[in-house]
């Protein structure tokens, strides 16, 4: 029993890192604009689906297909910002209208993917096809190492971007006070587009990393987006590092729910954690970012 629990905690950490990446995507957009982008799941789904399409339709090797997919998804993030968010933003729409519009965009992307690619679930080959490592009797497969390693690199890269590049600092300035940032000559609207590109790219990375261990299909986006949102809430909305920790917490909790309650309770457990946090501690574990 102990082995089983430890093993599922390990796999929970892997899935949780993915939730964390998606959660960070929520935070990046929220910090730059105060918008909660409910189409975040579409990016995750597109990342996996486009990589698969690149490999099977164009015969590209995995790394090339993955990079291509991330670039295309980042561009689609900018397109979402330009076509859907920007007009509403300029008119000063309410938060609710923004949520509704991005949720509708999620459905549109989902249905377009269904029409273009069909409803067959797809999967990607594991990145390193070797038998799992044995450490203290625990099996650690290489995809887990890829997920944890890539997440760590992405987070370190983001931290560096926000702390030491001019663009990153400008984005942080926007999150503190948009008006003041604009007065300093920061192109706030361009920062918004950049935030969507960054967030979409993060989603695509998460989608590509998780697909070899699960599968992807046109409709996987919403569950991933919900998990990412829960991760962001648990971490205190708007704190990227908190979102990542929240993601791992959620992943582990889900893994334990599967062991003790059965696989059917995976999503119910996640949603219950969300409601629990919303009711008891809506500012998250670390407290609110603002």
């Amino acid at each position: 029993m102990f082995d089983l629990v430890a093993q599922s905690i390990l796999s929970g950490i892997g899935v949780g890192a993915i939730y964390g990446l998606i959660g960070i995507g929520f935070c990046v957009i929220y910090n730059a604009s105060g918008i909660v982008n409910f189409a975040q799941g579409a990016f995750v789904m597109l990342g996996g689906m486009l990589t698969h399409a690149g490999m099977t339709k164009l015969g590209l090797p995995l790394p090339l297909a993955a990079i291509g997919a991330i670039a295309i998804v980042a561009l689609s993030g900018v397109a979402l910002e330009r076509i859907v968010v920007r007009p509403l933003w300029n008119r000063g729409s309410t938060m609710f209208v923004m949520i509704l519009a991005t949720l509708a965009a999620q459905i549109v992307v989902e249905r377009l993917t269904l029409i273009a690619a069909g409803d067959q679930p797809r999967t990607l080959p594991v990145f390193t096809d070797l038998p799992p490592l044995r450490v203290f009797g625990f099996a650690i497969n290489f995809q887990f190492l890829w997920i944890v390693g890539c997440s760590a690199i992405v987070i370190a890269g983001l931290a560096l971007f926000f702390s030491s590049t001019k663009t990153g600092k400008a984005m942080r300035a926007c999150s503190i006070n948009r008006d003041a940032a604009a007065l300093q000559g920061i192109p706030v609207s361009r920062m918004l587009a950049l935030a969507f590109a960054l967030s979409a790219g993060l989603g695509a990375v998460a989608g590509i990393l998780i697909t070899p261990t699960q599968y992807t299909a046109f409709n996987v986006g919403v569950p991933f987006a919900i998990s990412g949102f829960i991760a962001a809430i648990v971490g205190g909305f708007g704190r990227p590092l908190g979102a990542f920790m929240g993601g791992i917490l959620l992943g582990v909790a889900q893994a334990l729910a599967i062991v003790f309650l059965g696989a059917a309770f995976k999503n119910v457990a996640a949603l219950s954690i969300l409601l629990l946090f919303l009711f008891v501690r809506p500012t998250g574990l670390l407290g609110s970012a603002k």
């Binding site: 007009p87 509704l100 519009a101 509708a104 999620q106 549109v108 249905r111």
Partner: peptide, 19 residues
Amino acid sequence: DYQDLAYGAALIVILIYAP
């Protein structure tokens, strides 16, 4: 499939142009 697509797209257009 096209129905849900049309609903989603219509909703976006309405929200933007005819709130």
